[in-house]
């Protein structure tokens, strides 16, 4: 998991981080940032479009921290690049 992926995710998360909390790989997207379930899904949609990948809701429900999401993004980006 690279810092670049985490940085990109943090940038996408900014509009949803209305309480302007500090973001790290360990930040729990829903609990720490006080973001409701619908906003989390909206945020993940932005992540999907930014990286041009698919992150099904089933995967979202198992993803808690920014680091978890970065790992999902990298696994799915690689899959896209492979022939």
């Amino acid at each position: 998991m690279t810092q670049s992926t985490i940085n990109q995710i943090c940038k996408l998360l900014e509009p949803f981080n209305t309480e302007r909390k500090a973001l790290t790989a360990e930040t729990d997207i829903s609990a720490d940032l006080n973001i409701d379930s619908v906003a989390v899904m909206d945020f993940v949609m932005e992540v999907e479009d930014h990286f041009d990948i698919e992150i099904p809701l089933n995967v979202v429900s198992e993803t808690r921290s920014i680091g978890d999401l970065a790992a999902v993004v990298e696994a799915r980006t690689k899959k896209v690049l492979l022939p």
Binding site: M41, M45, E54, P56, L57, N58
Partner: peptide, 9 residues
Amino acid sequence: SGAKLVRFR
């Protein structure tokens, strides 16, 4: 359903 779920705008 257990299906893969994809949400569209």
